[in-house]
Design a protein around this nucleic acid. Structure first.
Lengths: 352, 352
DNA sequence: CTTTAGCACTCCTCGCTCCCGAGTGCTAAA
DNA sequence: TTTAGCACTCGGGAGCGAGGAGTGCTAAAG
């Protein structure tokens, strides 16, 4: 059954009041905020209906109404107005986007930090959709007889390097040969395959050289695997302490601990869209059952997406959070597309 | 005036009780834990003295006593017994030390995380004492006409690299020349000097090449400056929520926010020693005035030190925290000295 | 001079009751 | 269908008193 327009308006008022005050909303308060002038008694009748339909809840008889998850859902889907960001807000976000990006992981964690700062809720950030990173190119640079630098460029054009000490010692010629070997046989393949090939070579290669080879492969594996693929950065957890629903230290602790420890269980966003809102029990995670999560994604390029998620009470200011987050995510996407030196990126018309 | 042995023993009992219970300690409880059998009345007399001398405080008449910062200080300096770590504890720490260290910054932040986990208090981690890092060696690897990889090895043997897109385009020969130039003139000097030299060259170098040069230098500067020198990692902040003194959400929030935002104001450890304890008002930071901080340092090599600090209530279990932290820091120092492939490191006798 | 028992006193904590007021649900009239 | 009126509900806070842990003091004993 469809809700009457007036019911919707009432629902909206209740939700928006509750979002800003965290206190049950009474019929009188609603009456004064409605466009049409009706008495509080009328409102009460409507409220009773809305409760029965499951859009509102009553903490106890003789208290005002608070929204139920179902109510929030309706609000988010239909009632919520596209919140236009103020000039000030956009400027703030643009300023945040000016950050220098030195390394991809740095950007991801920074994005999380900024998201948290932007909305004053805890946030998490991660990259997703790296379907098996591979190495695109190896370089080995001789430093001294007992050590060399391994430079690994992954197929998404990130470059990592590290000094490796060879126990056996290698000279520049050997390194060059090794590099050629690596580039010939170890590029474009994933970790397990690398290890397999390494095994194959174990007999056919002189011992000392093989040692060095395997050290290099080990490093390469750590790069493509450990990168920041599964790393989840959590920030701004302290923000929840300001919220009345988390005045209780135990509750706050529970959520915080969950967010920092249980990082791989955080909701990931939908495929296709670039923003999702999960309200209360819509979250599969037990610990997030009475919080809401807003997740936005941005393109990093090379079919990878970055994720920024915001965790807050169900009484979250969805309009603002969604607006800011999506603007921010769009900005990040643009940033990666345009000025990113890491990636070729789609050329956009740009006048600098 | 010196304290009598009995006063010291009483003080010790009070502190240790208070540390474990967070509740004022009464004369009767003390009497039952003292080695010499004395009555509670005697204890009361002693307690009155201790209060007068400033070692103890009384929340209100007719409550037990709690230690004052001065009391804790005496305890830490004289009374506290060197806490021997149990086998289990050392094993746990040793296990933590097995971590792979891929990158220095990774290790530092990880050290902080582990420290927090080890003592169940919030912890922060940073590196200190990098007196102007310099570049030891440059390598430039040609990727394609419009981009190349810059590899920078700092004088403490860390290696960083990144793909740089050159707007003008450079071929391999040019890169080789550029690398030679860089290695000849831009190694061993600090950031400001690099920029000065760059200025000098601005006229004498062909435009396109100069562009590439300055991009590279810019990157080098970001490495030696931004590295992890001033970066402070904070973790485990959620731990404070378990403590009764931070049941109050406002208090907890204050400390947490301070720790994450105000990172550069965190106490740094003393020169010379490798561990310091700062109790309550001994902290210069307003926000840390009723918390205590235990800071330990470990050698990273190349006259750099890593710092791990633990922040907790003044009622912190100093003995345990100090023991674990120093054991952990020692372990880190050893780790860096021994198996660290990043650094030559002091040769220790080692039979592997 | 130190230690101890005794005792009155202090003051926090907890549970209880009671009151207030916001807000409801219902009824009856418009 | 809307509205005014009114009795009712229920949470929250104030006020009160009992209980108890712990003190400070005094006076006697070692």
């Amino acid at each position: 059954m469809e809700l009457t327009p007036r019911k919707k308006e009432i629902l909206k008022v209740v939700i928006e009041n509750y979002i800003s005050t965290a206190e049950p909303v009474g019929s009188k308060a609603i009456a004064s905020q409605l466009t049409s002038k009706v008495s509080s008694a009328t409102i009460r009748n409507e409220l009773a209906d809305l409760v029965e339909m499951g859009y509102l809840e009553q903490p106890h008889t003789s208290a005002g109404r608070i929204p139920s998850p179902k109510g929030y859902r309706l609000y988010v889907n239909e009632l919520m107005e596209q919140r236009a960001l103020s000039l000030q807000e956009t400027e703030e976000i643009n300023r945040a986007l000016q950050m220098k990006m030195q390394e991809l992981d740095g950007v991801i964690s920074k994005a999380g930090q900024m998201a948290a700062a932007l909305v004053n809720y805890p946030a998490y950030a991660m990259a997703s959709g790296t379907p098996g990173l591979t190495v695109q190119r190896f370089d080995l640079l001789s430093v001294d007889p007992s050590s060399f630098i391994a430079v690994v460029m992954t197929q998404d054009s990130r470059v990592k390097s590290r000094l490796i000490r060879s126990e056996t010692g290698v000279d520049a010629d050997q390194l060059a040969a090794l590099a050629a070997l690596l580039n010939a046989h170890f590029t474009g393949i994933d970790e397990t395959e690398m290890n397999r090939k390494l095994m194959d070579l174990s007999g056919k290669t002189p011992g000392p050289l093989f040692m060095t080879l395997s050290q290099t492969i080990e490093y390469a594996c750590s790069v493509i695997e450990g990168g920041e693929k599964n790393k989840v950065y959590t920030t701004g957890a302290n923000n929840i302490l300001k919220l009345p629903e988390f005045r209780d230290a135990d509750k706050a602790h529970e959520l915080m601990s969950f967010m920092v420890d249980n990082t791989e269980n955080l909701p990931v966003p939908p495929a296709g869209t670039n923003m999702e809102i999960l309200i209360g029990p819509e979250n599969v995670n037990e610990a997030l059952r009475d919080t809401s999560v807003v997740v936005a994604s941005y393109d990093i390029g090379d079919n990878m997406r970055g994720l920024i998620g915001v965790v807050g009470p169900t009484r979250m200011d969805y309009a603002t959070v969604a607006a800011r987050l999506s603007y921010f995510a769009e900005g990040l996407t643009k940033m990666f597309g345009k000025q990113d030196p890491l990636l070729p990126g789609p050329k956009e018309e740009q006048k600098t």
